[in-house]
Each structure stands twice: as structure tokens, then as C-alpha cells.
């Protein structure tokens, strides 16, 4: 990958990686650090990274950096545990989007990851499996569980149609 292709990946995906990190960390500075580190790592390996796999490489790297970050801050208790989010406010009673985002934080890291990659980035199950380092069938299980949880929270908040 040359500098031009790398810069193209910056222009195209920096926002996506940032949103992905922000959803996990709930802190802009931390999310910016993750984006910086992600691209730094990719530039370090740019000669061996295939341009076609650039986006996948970015999200894989970002995901692992996020896990490392959560571990370092002792906010990580396993991929299937829920990350403790501080200062979370209860969502407004009538805002579906706000409630959905609030509900997202109630999901374990791995479920949040697969749902974000699925809904935000439109990745297929096998692509998500590659990024998260799990099997495709596990991706399906996590997504199904996440949807059920999100649905139950929406019902709890009485925000469903």
C-alpha cells in the first residue's frame, strides 16, 4: 500500500473507526487516541497490507486496541462481560435512537462489536468473524442475542411501535 492509498483510507474510514471507538469507550479523547494508534499501526505495516483489506485491517486493529484499552483501565472483564460506563444518563423516554444507543451500552463488548460492525459498517458475518477473531457461527449467536436484548430493553422502555 502506498501513501496515496493509505491517505484514501484515512479520508474514507477515519470517521467510521472513530465512531466505532467512541461507541465502545464513550470518551472522545480516548476514541481519538484509538484512531491515531490504529492508523499508526497500519502505516507501520503499510508495505504488507493489501489495499483491498485496508478497511478490515483498520477495524481489526481498532478492536484489539479498544480491548487493550479497556483492560488497561480495568473496565474489561472479558468480551462477554458488560463494560461499566460511568456517568450514563437515562435516555429521554420518547427518543428511540437515544434509548437504542443507551441500550447498546448494556451489551457485552463482543455483542456490541458485532452489532456495530453489522449495522454501522454493513459487514457480513464472515467479515465480522475475521475482524473479531471468532467463528462465523459465533457471530450469528452474538448478533441474535444482542437483538433480543435490545428488543427487550425497548419493550421495557415502551418505545416500540
Amino acid at each position: 500500500m502506498n501513501a496515496r492509498a493509505y491517505n484514501q483510507l484515512v479520508d474514507t474510514y477515519a470517521d467510521n473507526v472513530y465512531r466505532f471507538a467512541l461507541k465502545h469507550l464513550k470518551n472522545e479523547m480516548d476514541a481519538k487516541d484509538i484512531v491515531q494508534s490504529t492508523y499508526l499501526k497500519m502505516w507501520d505495516k503499510h508495505e504488507s497490507v493489501d489495499v483491498a483489506k485496508g478497511k478490515s485491517y483498520l477495524f481489526t486493529t481498532a478492536y484489539h486496541l479498544i480491548l487493550d484499552f479497556l483492560k488497561a483501565g480495568k473496565r474489561f472483564h472479558g468480551e462477554e462481560a458488560i463494560v461499566e460506563v460511568q456517568n450514563e444518563d437515562n435516555p429521554s423516554d420518547f427518543d428511540l435512537s437515544e434509548t437504542l444507543n443507551w441500550a447498546l451500552d448494556k451489551l457485552p463488548v463482543i455483542q456490541k462489536t458485532v452489532v456495530l460492525l453489522r449495522d454501522y459498517e454493513g459487514y457480513s458475518y464472515d467479515e465480522i468473524a475475521e475482524i473479531a477473531g471468532i467463528s462465523e457461527s459465533q457471530v450469528k449467536v452474538y448478533i441474535f442475542r444482542a437483538r433480543k436484548t435490545l428488543k427487550s430493553i425497548l419493550i421495557e422502555k415502551e418505545l416500540v411501535v
Partner: peptide, 23 residues
Amino acid sequence: MYHQTKLSPDLEITFPNKQGLRK
């Protein structure tokens, strides 16, 4: 209900310093 669980990214959230990432 399940359709409502599909998330949409907030496109107004953008990384503020792309220029700093460029090489």
C-alpha cells in the same frame, strides 16, 4: 421490534483531525 433494533450511525460524529493522520 426487531427492525427497530437496527442501529444507524450518527454521521455528524466525525474524526476532527484527518489531516494529522495523512502521510
